[in-house]
Amino acid sequence: MASHFEDARYYMGRAVEHAKAGIKEEVEPLEDRVRELTGTEKEPEPGRLEKLQGDLKELEQRAEGEAREAVENARERVTAYREQRED
């Protein structure tokens, strides 16, 4: 009996997937027409390459900031050390 429920659940899932695809297919031309009339365009989804480039840019900026902080910190330490030696 349990296998019947598992089978039914599987086929219900497939039916939902097909219904969703069918609705999307039917509504797409209408959506395009509405967008054309209102003058709004679909935003393209960023591709994998664009996402990676964005991530790399963010990492580059963060690393640059951390490097600047490290240099500033080192300069302060050197200045403090030199002042301490002069006293």
Rank of each mutant, 00 (worst) to 15 (best):
S3N: 08
P44L: 01
P29Q: 02
Y81G: 02
Y10W: 11
P44H: 01
A74M: 10
E17C: 04
V34W: 10
R14F: 10
V16W: 06
L56I: 03
P46N: 02
R48Q: 10
E86A: 13
A2T: 02
E66W: 10
R75T: 01
E36N: 14
S3L: 06
G39L: 09
A67Y: 07
E69F: 09
E60A: 12
A19C: 09
A21G: 04
M12G: 02
M1E: 12
S3Q: 08
E64W: 03
R75P: 05
G22W: 06
E83S: 06
F5A: 12
R14Q: 15
D32L: 11
T40S: 12
E72Y: 06
A2Y: 04
T38C: 03
T79M: 08
Y81N: 10
E43H: 09
A67K: 10
V27I: 07
R9P: 07
R35A: 07
T79F: 04
R62D: 14
T79H: 10
E43W: 02
L37P: 07
T79Q: 15
E31F: 07
G22S: 15
A19N: 05
R9Y: 08
R85Q: 13
E6P: 02
E6W: 02
R62N: 08
A21M: 04
L49R: 15
N73C: 05
L59Y: 09
K42C: 03
K20W: 11
K20D: 14
A80H: 11
E58G: 11
R82G: 00
V34L: 11
A67W: 05
E72K: 07
Q53A: 09
M12R: 09
A63T: 01
N73V: 01
P29Y: 03
K24C: 12
R14E: 13
V34D: 01
E6R: 14
D55G: 13
E76G: 15
R33H: 13
A8D: 09
R14I: 01
D87Y: 12
E60Y: 03
R33S: 06
D87P: 00
R85P: 00
E60D: 12
R48A: 15
L30A: 08
E69S: 11
P29V: 00
F5I: 06
M1A: 14
E50R: 06
